[in-house]
Simulated scan of single mutants.
Amino acid sequence: MKVYIKKLSWLWMCIGIFGLGSCKNDNVAPAVPDEDNFAKGADISWITEMEAAGVSFYNQAGMATDGLKLLRALGMNAVRLRVWVDPTNGWCNKEDVLVKAYRAHHLGMRIMVDFHYSDHWADPGQQNKPAAWESLSLDELKAAVAEHTKEVLQLLKDNNITAEWVQVGNETGNGMLWEDGKASESMANYAALNNAGYDAVKAVFPEAKVIVHVHNGYDNSLFRWLFDGLTSNGGKWDVIGMSLYPDKDNWQERTQQCVQNMEDMIARYETKVMICEVGMSWDEEDAAVAFLTELMDRSRQFPTGQVLGVFYWEPLSYGGWNGYTLGAMDDSGRPTKVWEAFK
Rank of each mutant, 00 (worst) to 15 (best):
R72A: 11
F342M: 08
G323M: 11
F115P: 02
V168T: 04
E147L: 11
G235V: 05
C258N: 11
R268E: 04
F18V: 01
N220A: 14
W91E: 05
D119S: 00
W121I: 09
A122E: 00
G279N: 03
D158H: 10
V307Y: 02
W91G: 02
F38P: 03
K24A: 11
P124W: 12
W84Q: 03
L70Y: 03
Y4E: 09
Y4M: 10
M13Y: 12
H116N: 10
F291P: 01
L308E: 00
N194D: 03
D86V: 10
G319V: 03
M242Q: 03
M112A: 14
K248D: 13
G305N: 06
G333I: 13
V214F: 10
R110P: 10
I240D: 00
S221P: 06
C92P: 00
K202I: 06
A287T: 00
A328G: 03
M50Y: 09
M274C: 08
T293A: 07
A188F: 04
D331F: 09
I275H: 02
A42W: 04
K150P: 00
N93D: 14
E284D: 14
N216M: 15
T255D: 06
W12I: 09
A191H: 10
G90W: 05
S281E: 13
E140Q: 13
T88M: 14
A104I: 07
G234K: 15
A52H: 07
A122R: 05
Y190M: 13
Q126A: 15
K182M: 15
E284C: 11
V310Q: 06
D249E: 12
N93P: 06
V214W: 14
L68T: 01
C258K: 03
R110C: 07
D123P: 01
I275Q: 03
K157R: 12
